[in-house]
Design a binder for these strands. Structure first.
Length: 269
DNA sequence: ATGTCGCGTGAAACGCGA
C-alpha cells in the first residue's frame, strides 16, 4: 500500500514546523508540495531527508515552486511542463514529475501548481493572466495525453486552482466569475479528466458536500467553513484500479501558522 | 470591518501574488 499526499504549503520555510509535524503524524510515502516559494538551494532538504524522504525540487525565487518527496528513490525526474509554443518561455516553476516504486507499485507522480488566473476579466473578456492559465491547462492536457500512452500508474496531484463543480464550493454564485470557477476553466478541467483520469476524491466520495481543501485567510473563511475544493489527485486507469482510499485532512488548516490549503491524500493498494 | 499571509526590498512600510 502506498499513501500519496499533496499539499500547497504556502512557503515551505515559513511552514516547516507544521509540515514536519504533519509528515511524522500522517506518514505519507510520497508527498507533492506546491508554493514552496524558494529556490532549489533554499529548500530544507536535510530536514526531510532526516525523516527518510528522497527529495526532488523545482523552485524559484519568491513565487511558485514545486517539490516531490518519496520514501523510495526518485527516478526520471523532469522539471517544467513541456508543450510550449515555438520560442515560448514559461519562467514559472509549476511542474515536476518523477517515478518512484514500492514493490510492484511503480508510480509516476507529478506535483502541479496550476496558475490562479485572477483577475480573469468580465466574461467573455479574458485577461492576460487568465489566458496564461487556460494555455497552461492546454499544455497539461497535451502532456497528460502523452503520459497516458505509457499505460503506467500515474498520479497527477497538486493545486489545480480549479473548482470542478458546484458541489465543491460553499457559495457557487459568489465564485461564478472567478478564474477558479469560470466555465472556461471547468470545461478544460473536464476535458483533462475525459482523457481517462480519475478524480480520486470524487471517485470515493461522489455525493459528499462541504469537502474543501482551501479556506482563504480573510474574512474568517476557515471558521465559517467557507472553503473550496481545488487540490486534486488525478489517476491514470492503472492507478485508479488500485485506489483504496482518499481523504482530506483538515487538521493542519486549524493549527497556528497554517497554510491556507490543507493536505489531501490517496492510497493505492 | 478593505478585518490575511508571505516574500522581497531595504531598513519601515509597501507592492505583489494569492
Amino acid at each position: 500500500m502506498v499513501k500519496i499526499a499533496t499539499w500547497n504549503v504556502n512557503s515551505v520555510k515559513a511552514r516547516l514546523p507544521n509540515v514536519l509535524a504533519w509528515l511524522k503524524e500522517a506518514a505519507p510515502d510520497v508527498v507533492l508540495f506546491q508554493e514552496i516559494k524558494c529556490i532549489d538551494e533554499g529548500f530544507p532538504r536535510m530536514e526531510f531527508e532526516d525523516l527518510g524522504y528522497n527529495v526532488a525540487v523545482h523552485g524559484q525565487k519568491t513565487y511558485n515552486g514545486v517539490a516531490i518527496l518519496s520514501k523510495s528513490p526518485l527516478d526520471d525526474i523532469r522539471r517544467g511542463l513541456p508543450h510550449l509554443e515555438e520560442n515560448g518561455v514559461d519562467d514559472h516553476a509549476r511542474y515536476i514529475e518523477a517515478v518512484t516504486g514500492f514493490g510492484d507499485l511503480v508510480i509516476r507522480v507529478a506535483s502541479i501548481y496550476l496558475p490562479n488566473g485572477n483577475p480573469s476579466g468580465q466574461p467573455p473578456e479574458i485577461t492576460e493572466k487568465y489566458a496564461y492559465k487556460l494555455k497552461w491547462m492546454d499544455r497539461l492536457k497535451s502532456h497528460a495525453t502523452e503520459l497516458l500512452k505509457q499505460e503506467e500508474m500515474i498520479v497527477l496531484g497538486g493545486d489545480y486552482n480549479v473548482i470542478p463543480t458546484e458541489l465543491d464550493v460553499y457559495d457557487p454564485d459568489a465564485w461564478r466569475g472567478d478564474a477558479l470557477f469560470r466555465l472556461e476553466t471547468r470545461d478544460k478541467f473536464r476535458a483533462l479528466q475525459n482523457l481517462g483520469l480519475t478524480d480520486a476524491f470524487k471517485a470515493l466520495h461522489p455525493v459528499e458536500t462541504h469537502c474543501y481543501t482551501f479556506w482563504d485567510y480573510q474574512g474568517g473563511a476557515w471558521q465559517k467553513d467557507n472553503g473550496i475544493r481545488i487540490d486534486h489527485l488525478l489517476l491514470s486507469p492503472q492507478a485508479a484500479d488500485r485506489l483504496t482510499g482518499c481523504q482530506i485532512d483538515r487538521k493542519p488548516r486549524g493549527q497556528e501558522k497554517a497554510s491556507d490549503h490543507t493536505p489531501i491524500w490517496c492510497e493505492l493498494t
